[in-house]
Amino acid sequence: MRILARFWKALGSMNLTILLCLLLAADVVWGYAAIRWRTALFIPLNDLGLFAWMQTYGRHNLTYTGWFFALLVLLALLALNTASCTLERVRHVLAARSSLSVVRLAVKLGPHVMHAAVLVILLGYLASYLYTEVVVGTVLLPGRSYTLPGDAGVITFVEFRHEVYQGSRLKVFQGEVIRPEAAMMLSAKGRQREAILGFNQPVRLNGYSIHLSDFAPKKPGGMRLNKRIDLHIRKDPGVVLYLTGIGMFCLGLGLYMLDWRMYREVRQ
């Protein structure tokens, strides 16, 4: 147990943080070069699970994907490092809480809220890449429906309600769709509601998020392509976690900035 406790304490070393961050910076630069050279190897990461990708694209192309495995290890170490360091320091802060006001205590916890947020974000990503259910290649024509997995609901593509560009400033887009929108009917448990699906405007139904991946035609009435929308459907348990982590980080940042402004002179 002593060895474990010593190991855990050593994991919280700031020297280790510095080393890991440097290694991570170097690793992601390697990753940038690898993705630029072989983008097609990494596109499936968007929809395959982490293990499925590692077992196929990952391990059969280690020259280009090795950085990703290193990234996982380094992030795991960083998470352990952050957890150990944060827990230890929060323990110290809480031990001294009797001598601090509520506000002072809150701002002192600011950096640790940020560090905890990093852990929550990393956990969110892990959950996302391990457990997300993805449906790719779903195409709907006007009037057509798709039943979500497990009968979670039915989505129907009703019609397009595009915004077409009529101005003269964007010459390339004249007469073309500039803001694609598809009117959808969402049905679940006997209830129906209409929703508008756009490029940055997903719709949600019973835990599934439905994103617009592509559409045709780009120019109403002008092209020979049939009307359709391509959907990317996901049920991602990690979303709540990493959105929460983002919120926590912003909260911690705010507290830290408050600490800096309120108590900067005292500290200095």
Binding site: L24, A25, I35, S128, F199, P202
Partner: peptide, 21 residues
């Protein structure tokens, strides 16, 4: 996330340079 359904899209490696910085 809103546009592609995932916070990191691996088609564009520019995000990695942001992370490196």
């Amino acid at each position: 996330y809103l546009g592609w359904g995932t916070p990191v899209v691996w088609d564009d490696p520019a995000i990695l340079l942001m992370m490196a910085a």
